[in-house]
Design a protein around this nucleic acid. Structure first.
Lengths: 357, 357
DNA sequence: TGTTCTACGTATATCGTTCTACACTTTTTT
DNA sequence: AAAAAAGTGTAGAACGATATACGTAGAACA
């Protein structure tokens, strides 16, 4: 015999009167406990207009009594998840830890949380990560040291509020940028090295056609060298980021016919590797070779490194970027571009004990 | 006049026949394009039983044609989000990067993605992070170096599949653990140092009552010292993790009346700080002082550090842990406990050029 | 030939929120 | 005193997937 009504058996009212299946406390449970409607509880949750103090207090009490926590997935279905996505190129670089500290500080008293994804400096992985974060309904994205071009970033920005740290594009209108003045930073390095008697100053940069920060640093380096009348000593080596490649390139630089007497590295981690290679070659730092990094990470302070570096205040960058992202999430559509002034932190790796000729 | 039917105006059919409001391609769009039901598309998505090859091909074509991507939030409402949560204590320690590499390798060809949260080695933040991840419907949790006790971990495990890396609890039944044999690792260190002529071997450990890995390493250190007949030289200093505290403690150890001739540090990062302090004090490594770390991170290889360390193969740990977590997500309920055998990687920081007396 | 399987599809309730479109009550304005 | 405005609360339709509980056609079997 065929059941009358077709799907009747599967229709809600037959299943069970009220079983809260998942075990999770829902907004419905809170509403029931407080003796109000679900809508009212939602209003309290969202701090929306139209709730009396009495009702608010009442609902709040029920919420904490029952240990209610809103389910992000359900919220995501209707809009916000109160989660922002952070895309980092490389977890090994401690500079990103500084940025994260700033991000977390900015998020501290909000409902928002940051979720991190690592792109391993690969454009494909980075895009996959971004897609994945959009799938997961992140309210906004914070991309750090992205190698995407403006067009791609704009496409992303059309879908989600976006702030880019470490991507120079003062004309960008769809997203905000937060940077230090990389060109200026590189010039500080060259000036400092020149003042300390170094002349054959080389730069070890990253092999990456699309990184605007590297382009700026290289530009600053070139300008600095030109202004010091050292145009003929300009030499930029572009290496990939892998340990092996960096070592090979550093070794090649230092064992060539006209080795540099100073190497400016695009990030501290690379500088540490250069120091390592130099030591292995029996070179004395800073007398035979000066080494300067970028980011002023915690490793610079260790006595065995004692690395001169540019401080771009990662924590500030993270803090500002998060603030901007919050504003965008709340509705701002005009672009803002925040730039921090870098400063040089001089340590032993670039200050010879006795002056140089 | 009151509208008959009450809310009629807000009822679906009045709003618009079919506008896909969000701009996102949904399962419904795919179904329409392929000329099949929504349920059929869902089956294809989940690789569920009951779809012909023809239908599957057809649906797949529509999906890629339209660029369909499932929305994690919507999936989360009914079950899985295909996202696992990773809780790390500290992003600065490069060892965790090794673990993450393993995690990502294991996840590579799956639909799953890992989202990272940082607890900053704080129990409160860690719990907040876990709650936050449960709110976000993570399918499973991977906790690394957690300081929670078994009871708390069990509570979490009751709510979500859980695997703990760096938490010794072979009796745990609700969750899996993945570790290296920390006790054995510490013993390797002591044996190696003794064999190289060091006697006054101290240990610099973390101040943390609940870390089972630290407890195991301290135990291994003690056993190693006892077995070598050096019981009277046992000395464990428990320091917090902050740069400042470590420096103060290292300095205190090295300037005391009976300074150690070797320091075994609970992680490489701490060992690097000890090397730094030792250099500042004018001590020669390894002749005046041997330093040994743990984790064999990339920094050990740098010539300026040249740090002997214990390799516990972070990548392996991450890979195995992720495999176990996947199994748990798929339904396994019996506990598994995976242990890697550590090995010592000897470098200059513990091998004096000429033998010691 | 009728009956039973099996394979393949479909309709629709459901998950936990948000938020619009109301109703009702009280206060303020005219 | 009537009208307008403000304040407070509610009902219930989404959001985009999943998965249950079916129908139905054709093949295999008796």
């Amino acid at each position: 015999m065929i059941w009358p009504g077709g799907w009747a058996l599967s229709k809600g009212r037959f299943v069970s009167e009220k079983a809260t299946r998942s075990g999770r406390v829902t907004i419905r449970d809170v509403a029931e406990d407080a003796g109000v409607s679900v809508a009212a509880v939602s209003k309290v949750l969202r701090d929306a207009y139209g709730v009396s103090d009495a009702l608010r207090t009442n609902v709040r009490a029920s919420m904490s009594k029952l240990g209610y926590r809103p389910l992000a997935a359900a919220r995501g279905m209707r809009g916000q998840t109160y989660t922002i996505g952070l895309v980092l190129p490389d977890i090994r670089n401690p500079f990103f830890a500084d940025i994260m500290t700033g991000v977390n500080t900015a998020l501290e008293r909000s409902q928002y949380r940051a979720m991190i994804g690592i792109s391993h400096s690969s454009v494909e992985t980075e895009m996959a990560m971004v897609e994945s974060m959009i799938d997961r309904q992140m309210d906004g994205l914070l991309m750090i040291g992205s190698t995407e071009d403006r067009e791609n970033l704009n496409t992303i920005a059309q879908r989600k509020p976006l702030v880019a740290i470490g991507h120079h594009d003062p004309e960008a209108s769809g997203f905000d940028t937060v940077n230090n003045h990389d060109q200026q930073g590189a010039m500080l390095v060259v000036k400092h090295l020149v003042a300390n008697g170094y002349r054959r100053i080389a730069m070890l940069s990253l092999i990456s056609g699309t990184s605007t920060i590297l382009a700026q640093r290289e530009l600053g380096y070139r300008r600095g060298m030109m202004e010091a009348g050292l145009g003929k000593h300009i030499g930029i080596v572009n290496s990939s980021q892998t340990l092996r490649e960096v070592q090979i390139n550093a070794r090649r630089m230092l064992t060539g016919s006209q080795p540099p007497d100073a190497i400016f590295c695009w990030t501290d981690l690379i500088a540490l590797e250069v120091i390592s290679v130099a030591k292995e070659l029996g070179l004395s730092i800073p007398d035979d070779l000066a080494v300067v990094g970028y980011d002023n990470t915690m490793f610079c302070d260790f006595a065995q490194n004692n690395l001169t570096s540019i401080d771009q205040s990662g924590e500030q960058l993270g803090l500002q970027a998060t603030r901007l992202l919050m504003e965008r999430i709340k509705g701002r559509t005009t672009a803002e571009h925040f730039v921090v002034t870098p400063r040089i932190v001089v340590r032993q790796s670039s200050t010879p004990t006795s002056g140089r000729s």
